[in-house]
Simulated assay, not measured.
Amino acid sequence: MSSHIVPPLVEVNPIPAIDTTRLFRTVGETLSPIDKFIINTNAINRILSNAAPEGDPSPELCSVVVLGYLSAVETYFRTLLSRLAHIDEITMQALGQKQLLFSVAMAVHRDSLAEALYEDSFASVKELKARLNEIGMKHLPTEIEAAMVTYDRICHLRHCCVHRFGYLGHKNAHDLGLPRHGHLVGAIFSASGDDLAAIADALQQFVKACNNHIFRFVIDRTVTDQNNRQSELSWKWRWKWKLNSDARRFKPYYDLFALVRGTPASASLKEVYGHFRDSNRN
């Protein structure tokens, strides 16, 4: 028999070793989730601007940009809900039934456990609604329900970018509307600069609207639950409706939801507390 060695169809070089411990750096500054979301989105915008200073971006860059935008959205919700569990008794109680791997519980510091719970995805309307339902938001405001239609469409674009390198598959075409997208199956995602700007703006307005409604929901809920004689919580504190007395309890909520770095920034703690007091103390 011949001892002839058949060369490989594709030449393969040794795979380099990857030390993942060298691929991360710690972040010192702690910002509110909405501030961090705006900063992250603006960072993606700068990458887009530098990579395609003139003309429309390539399909590959379009996919990377959309992935970045949706990653910023997911990070916002994951950070917000995990931190909320630390300051809001009702949220902590609601998440108390959430399963957590024993290995994670043993390895993660207690202050980080709540964030460890949120490895779940937020990259679809179904998943986002499920996460909000977990903290008690079973019925969403009309404004958020309407905005979720646009968010859902962007999530389907993300799915194409992640799983098909930008090519539209039949399932996503069906979810986006087969009558209008059926002939585009197999086409690659290739947005203009204006299209990407519209996607970025839609996501920013969506996150801001969610931020406002979640804040009002959780802060007003404290009043409702404190006045509920059948509450499962034994409240050790109550709102006094005086800023000097309530500031210590109100400030953690304000700091979690307030936009400080963006323009326009949120109203002052004193002003926001005044609205909260006036709408609830009666």
Rank of each mutant, 00 (worst) to 15 (best):
I38A: 02
L128K: 12
L157E: 07
M92N: 14
T20M: 03
Y69S: 08
K98F: 02
A43V: 09
F206P: 01
K240V: 13
L70F: 02
R261G: 00
G186S: 09
K171H: 08
N212S: 12
F102G: 07
A265K: 13
W235S: 07
P264N: 05
I87W: 05
L128A: 08
D246N: 03
G182A: 14
R22A: 14
R221P: 00
C160M: 15
V65D: 04
L81I: 15
A147I: 04
K98Y: 02
T91M: 10
P16H: 06
E29A: 12
S124Q: 11
C155G: 03
I5R: 10
L117V: 02
T263G: 01
S112H: 10
V218M: 10
K240Y: 06
L113A: 06
I34S: 07
T142D: 11
H139F: 08
C210D: 01
N228R: 12
H156M: 13
S279P: 00
D255P: 00
L178N: 08
L9C: 06
G262E: 06
K270Y: 00
P14H: 09
Y69A: 10
G177L: 12
P7G: 04
F206I: 10
S279Q: 13
P33K: 12
L176I: 04
G55Q: 04
G177M: 12
N211Q: 08
P33R: 12
A17S: 10
T79I: 04
V64C: 03
N244G: 12
I38R: 05
R249W: 15
A116K: 02
